[in-house]
């Protein structure tokens, strides 16, 4: 779904995953001794892009923000009467629990992605150059076919007569097809499937940058491989881990398609609530308030990320 998070720049060199500059690992250009140019040049370069972002990004976000304190119009839109009702409603257990459980689902997916993504990235980073490229492209490849079609494929795989049940019955693990579709696990599977590469790419970038001599030094000093990993390798890759976690967590939290297609209407996430406020209930102010809650969660997350990368930052092995 979040196509914009989906794909690595095809021409970008390995080590520069999509949006990598968003991560903590890319600092400001270090060598910058020249002046900043004339005011006219500054305006010519920065003006169009910033103007565009102000009109089509900041103004819309400000509108959403301002809607949170108004009443809904009966048929969508907004009535300009002040109210704090939307915020009271946000803390209504009905909606707040959905927000909480969405955070839980997104966290679960992120952890699963980290667990499977870290070793994968680790192996890829150690491959010979040619295989490295192939392995990386293979991680990105699935993104090149439509997101919705890929999600749909999971219905075929997991349904009663589907491949997974066939396989499980075939090897004798079960004797009767399991109900694999339409539950929380299915949603996590779908989310994991959709965003796993967003975890692998920044992890790969972080691991690849490590100086192998560090590990050798640690081993030479008598550390066991496990100890080397936990006390040397892992801390150095924490910034990459954090970037990957943000990349996975963010699109998971706002998702509404996967719960809808793979959840069988039995569970919803905050994305569904927001979508429904705009497209079904036509309650734009409350939809905006829910969106604000999502933004709030993300701001907390980004602060955590900044804090953690500062704690682990400053160590060698990262590009300054």
């Amino acid at each position: 779904m979040t196509a914009k998070h989906d794909i690595a720049p095809p021409g970008a060199p390995p080590g520069a995953p999509p949006g990598a500059p968003a991560g903590p690992s890319t600092g400001r250009p270090s060598r910058r001794s020249r002046g900043l140019g004339t005011a006219a040049a500054r305006l010519a370069f920065l003006g169009p892009g910033l103007g565009y972002l102000i009109v089509l990004l900041l103004v819309p976000l400000a509108l959403v923000l301002s809607y949170t304190v108004f009443r809904r119009g009966r048929f969508g839109g907004v009535v300009y009467e002040w109210t704090l009702e939307n915020f009271t409603r946000l803390f209504d257990p009905l909606y707040f629990d959905v927000v909480l459980s969405s955070v839980k689902t997104a966290t679960l997916t992120t952890l699963a992605a980290l667990l499977i993504g870290y070793p994968t990235a680790y192996v890829i980073a150690g491959l010979p150059r040619k295989w490295k490229t192939i392995a990386l492209i293979a991680v990105v490849m699935p993104f090149w076919t439509n997101f919705l079609i890929r999600v749909y494929a999971w219905i075929i795989l997991l349904s009663g007569p589907g491949l997974v049940n066939e396989a499980l019955t075939g090897i004798g693990l079960i004797d009767k097809p399991l109900q694999l579709l339409y539950n929380q696990g299915t949603i996590v599977t779908g989310l994991l499937y959709s965003y796993l590469p967003l975890m692998i790419l920044p992890l790969y970038a972080a691991i690849e940058r490590l100086d192998p001599q560090l590990r050798e030094a640690s081993a030479n000093l008598g550390a066991r491989p496990a100890r080397t990993f936990w006390s040397v390798t892992f801390p150095l890759t924490v910034p990459g881990v954090l970037t990957g976690c943000v990349f996975v967590f963010v699109p998971c939290l706002g998702n509404f398609v996967i719960p809808e297609i793979l959840g069988g209407g039995r569970s919803i996430m905050v994305g569904n609530l927001i979508r429904d406020q705009f497209l079904k209930a036509r309650d734009w102010p409350f939809g905006s308030t829910l969106a604000l809650a999502v933004i709030a969660v993300l701001v907390v997350l980004l602060f955590l990320q900044a804090w953690a990368s500062r704690v682990y930052g400053g160590t060698e092995g990262r590009r300054a």
Partner: peptide
């Protein structure tokens, strides 16, 4: 149902949000 239609919206949310 005019304004009261939100009651049905809430009902539907209560059903789908229930785990």
């Amino acid at each position: 149902l005019g304004e009261a239609s939100t009651k049905y919206t809430r009902l539907a949310t209560e059903i789908s949000a229930n785990q």
